[in-house]
């Protein structure tokens, strides 16, 4: 009897080990098979267009000529715009949450920020289309072209739909996410460090700038890269408002597209095998770009936390 139960136990032990290890390895397999499968399905396009796919501006489903440049540029420009707008705001929000807000309100604000980060991106996109785009078209874009119209960035018809609105919606979407990462990083600063700075007579700002920020530098950079990775791959917040036009333009007011929005709009309409392969290759490019950005982010974040604390 006793022998039986130990054997039974040993079998369970083996199954348990197998299942847990298997699940861990499964994640690796999943990631690499994604890479493999995307490459395989995109192969006709990779073979036909070669590396020039990356810098060709062609996108013509009728003649079956495809290139990724307009979508890559669109992805990078919309992300850059979002980062320029969101990073200073996120920094301000994080300082506000950790240093300024009354202690009683702090948990409420933090939860509010995290709840807002949980709202699905389709809500942001839809709001952008119905609410922000008309405001941009009627007020903000005309004002910008009147006062900054000498820059090619702000020339062109104020339509509301286009790169400009997409960048703003994207910024609003990544703001809560980046703020909450930065807040977590700032909160890791040991109290003793901050208190000794205050004890030496430093102002709140000096404590933030010379103690909190240097201490959490790596974490902040990691958080920024996480936000960057999110913005690069974001689909719904952008697809609603960017206008989906395959064109390069200096003007931020013109309709444009990103890799993700192109996939969202055209994938189910891909009529020929090479069209589908080209779209999958776009997906592969996006996957590789975000993989590198997010990998850097994790690397920085992991180094920001001392080994023992993990």
């Amino acid at each position: 009897m006793k022998e039986k139960s130990t054997r039974f136990s040993a079998v369970w032990e083996a199954i348990f080990k197998f299942l847990t290890h298997g699940a861990g390895v499964f994640i690796l397999i999943l990631l690499f098979s994604m890479l493999g499968v995307l490459t395989y399905v995109a192969w006709p396009s990779i073979k036909k267009f070669g590396l020039s796919f990356l810098w060709s501006t062609a996108w013509n489903p009728v003649t079956n000529q495809f290139g990724a440049l307009t979508t890559i540029v669109g992805t990078l420009v919309s992300t850059a715009l979002a980062m320029i707008l969101a990073v200073p705001l996120a920094f301000g929000v994080a300082i506000f949450l950790t240093e300024l807000s009354p202690t009683v309100l702090r948990p409420i604000f933090s939860v509010a920020i995290e709840l807002l980060a949980a709202i699905p991106s389709i809500i942001y996109g839809m709001w952008g289309l119905f609410k922000l785009a008309p405001i941009n078209a009627d007020y903000i874009q005309p004002w910008l072209s009147k006062h900054l119209g000498f820059l090619p960035l702000f020339q062109g018809p104020p339509m509301g739909i286009g790169m400009f609105t997409a960048g703003i919606v994207l910024a609003i979407m990544i703001l809560p996410f980046m703020s909450s990462v930065m807040k977590d990083v700032f909160e890791m600063t040991p109290k003793v460090l901050k208190e000794s700075a205050y004890g030496l007579g430093a102002t709140t700002w000096e404590v933030v700038w010379q103690v909190v920020l240097p201490y959490g530098k790596r974490g902040v950079v990691g958080g920024l890269f996480l936000g960057l990775g999110r913005a690069l791959g974001e689909t719904m917040a952008v697809t609603f408002v960017i206008g989906n036009a395959h064109q390069l333009s200096w003007s931020l007011f013109m309709p444009s597209n990103t890799i993700a929005s192109t996939l969202a709009n055209e994938f189910t309409e891909a009529s020929s095998p090479i069209y589908l392969a080209a779209l999958v290759e776009l997906g592969l490019v996006l996957f590789l770009i975000t993989f590198i950005v997010l990998g850097l982010a994790q690397w920085w974040l992991n180094r920001s936390v001392p080994k023992e604390a993990r």
Binding site: L28, L30, A264, G283, T290
Partner: peptide, 23 residues
């Protein structure tokens, strides 16, 4: 490695996962 890659995976673009499952 698994830990590092799943951290990346958490923020991977969801539309690319759609393309993968489509395939």
């Amino acid at each position: 490695t698994v830990r590092f890659l799943s951290d990346i995976f958490v923020s991977a673009p969801s539309i690319v996962i759609g393309v993968f499952v489509y395939a």
